[in-house]
């Protein structure tokens, strides 16, 4: 019952996405409430990144409807820029602007798009950088940062727009293993602070720790949807079981005594 009382933020109804004749997403429906953390997992090519890109209006859709607080998301509409401000998106390859410093990267959109005063934006940017432990890098250029640092700056850049919801698209997939942790910790902290987010990831233990709900996507449809405790210990569908098994290894060497 508690779920029903929560404020509804994002609603996807019968979303269909296809490139020419290849259907990438067929009939996806999903509702996200305020404060909810949704993790989307599935084999590569299952359409999970495309789903995030559709939510942000970066991909034209062929059917269905996506709304944020009742406002339709359509990449071609005039209001799309205004909706995108409410959706913070972080990409796999950081995509910081290489010709701008860390601080300039973060402050550009709040000042140019939201027309907020420089002092206020700068104060917030610094405070957010402090929170992810990168304040001393504020005047560095992206090329001077490690992958993990770049990704944390990208997260701060999205946060500084004060979005209602964050979209994380495989944000650790391009990182060296020892840098994955620092980025995931940042996201965990956001989740703890009550942020609403949809996370596409391959990090299963992270997914288990951070999510309120797990969506398992395969072949462009939601095959299974469950709370993480249930999904990871007792998946209901054969496809989910098979997918989870790919993360386990059988010992090949016998350590006989």
């Amino acid at each position: 019952m508690a779920e029903l009382l929560k404020e509804e933020l994002l609603r996807i109804e019968h979303l269909r996405k296809a490139y020419d004749n290849t259907v990438v997403l067929k009939d996806i429906s999903l509702t996200v409430h305020k404060g909810e953390v949704i993790v989307v997992i599935g084999p590569s090519g299952c359409g999970k990144s495309t789903l995030l890109r559709c939510i942000n209006g970066l991909e034209p859709i062929q059917g269905g409807k996506i709304t944020l607080r009742g406002q339709e998301i359509d990449g071609n509409s005039k209001d799309i820029a205004q909706i995108r401000q409410k959706l913070g998106m972080v990409f796999q390859n950081y995509e910081l602007f290489p010709h701008k410093t860390v601080l300039q990267n973060i402050m550009l959109a709040p000042m140019k798009v939201q027309k907020r005063p420089k002092d206020e934006v700068e104060a917030q940017a610094k405070q957010l950088l402090e929170r992810v432990g990168l304040l001393e890098k504020k005047d560095s250029y992206p090329r001077q940062l490690s992958g993990g640092q770049k990704q944390r700056v990208a997260i701060v850049r999205a946060l500084c727009m004060n979005p209602e919801m964050m979209l994380f698209d495989e944000v650790t997939a391009a990182l060296d293993p020892e840098m994955v942790r620092e980025v995931l910790d940042t996201i965990l902290e956001l989740a703890k602070a009550g942020g609403t987010m949809i996370i596409v990831t391959h990090e299963m233990s992270f997914a288990k720790a951070v999510s309120d709900r797990v969506l398992f996507l395969d072949g462009g449809e939601i095959v299974e949807e469950a709370v993480p405790e249930k999904f990871f210990s007792d998946p209901q569908t054969e496809r989910a079981k098979r997918f989870l098994r790919t993360f386990e290894y059988d010992a090949v060497k016998h350590h006989d005594i």
Partner: peptide, 8 residues
């Protein structure tokens, strides 16, 4: 895309 995603 990352620029559009920021609402620019």
């Amino acid at each position: 895309e990352s620029s559009y995603a920021l609402g620019m």
